[in-house]
Design a protein around this nucleic acid. Sequence first.
DNA 1: GCAAAAGTGTTGGGGCTACACCCATGA
DNA 2: TCATGGGTGTAGCCCCAACACTTTTGC
Lengths: 241, 241
Amino acid sequence: MARAKTGANLPHCYEFPMVSVAVDCAVFGWDINDGLHVLLIERGEKPFGHALPGGFVRAKQENLETAARRELEEETGVSNAHLEQFHAYGDPERDDRGNHVISVAFFALVRRIDHTPRGGTDADTADWYPIQQARSLKLAFDHQTILSDAIDRLFEKLRHDPIAFKLLPRKFRLREVQHLYETALGQEVDKRNFRKKLLEMGLLEDTGETESDVRHRAARLYRFNNAEYEKRSRQGWKFDI
Amino acid sequence: MARAKTGANLPHCYEFPMVSVAVDCAVFGWDINDGLHVLLIERGEKPFGHALPGGFVRAKQENLETAARRELEEETGVSNAHLEQFHAYGDPERDDRGNHVISVAFFALVRRIDHTPRGGTDADTADWYPIQQARSLKLAFDHQTILSDAIDRLFEKLRHDPIAFKLLPRKFRLREVQHLYETALGQEVDKRNFRKKLLEMGLLEDTGETESDVRHRAARLYRFNNAEYEKRSRQGWKFDI
DNA sequence: GCAAAAGTGTTGGGGCTACACCCATGA
DNA sequence: TCATGGGTGTAGCCCCAACACTTTTGC
């Protein structure tokens, strides 16, 4: 999908030099045993190494979010993610292949169990990396900056928006929620106070089910009541943890 | 600055059709007598009517923020604004002149007294409009959506970031701060409690001066201590109102 | 019965809300 | 002296933080 400047037929001509537009996604997945992970591509072409999934927007055919969903599906097999655009990156030198490429970055939240990554259409492979490890890799282009911004934004947003429930399984234990928030806040929280706050908020429904296959007392499973959240949201209520 | 498709020399050729990249700015100004205003251009060309100041990014020459500053300066004479990128708009049909133009939108905060708007380099004229009035205008392209998002974002951000002091004069009365917050929150706040909170926060310095030319008791003038704010910020402290 | 996590109540203190009056100034 | 906004103190309440033990289950 690179905009070649060499070669025979370059049929699309303009008065001024043009910028290319790409989208990139920081896809996050959560697992109570493993913590927060991000989905990275191991590139099979030009700038080798790891990178965020993404690619060029198809002019006149799609908007930014559609492009992001398409690239995500093509490169990693992930579909139906919760997508949120968070920043555009536009330094002229950010793509070291020479073109001026601006990239609109999204973060994406998925339930990790639903998404065993698969490789892309070409030689690329996609895989989950713990965020600590991902942070220590040398990513292509300015993807390390993008990833770092995405993580900051995700942690910030978890506090003011109930997007945690896009990461957690549909039926979850309270302790999973707590663990996720401890990761986001960077500190431990008091179990009793956290549960009280969460339950008294009135957005969690007891499914009546409990976990199974554990060798200790089984935890109740809860479900997030999104309809109720949206109702209150329209009335000006604000989620906060 | 339009990317003409007609005409003789179109020297920049590509393998694929290209997207154009623009930046647009919602410039906000505040005045205690007048409330919140936004700076709009009255366009002298093609899609006539009002629009946000902005224009195309110069490929290979500038990044997004630089482009926004340049366009702001060229079209309205505004310089040294506080700029924050907030969203990118990319629907293929959003520019009704036919090209696929994505726009990276910024909101800009200025001290209105410093900026008497002046016209642009061409036939355009720039002027302040109260936000209520601006909201009721039919703006060019999807600028009404952009403006509306910018206002929402500004109001939200005022609560978690001391950006109010980018809108207020360098030396301000407490009542001005209160008025601005009442606008942002959409509700009145208690004078005593508001002052207490603000002063006990310890980020406002008494300048020792008072306002003049008023026919009632003169108010003290305060200054925002940005150095202190940044220091605390680095220590993890969070502004909140 | 033991290991491992689930689940639960109370208390004290700090911060927020609510509320009303005097002060300084210019006309 | 009056009109106009500037400036201040307190009491009650609610919410948040701190804190430790009992329950269930599988092995």
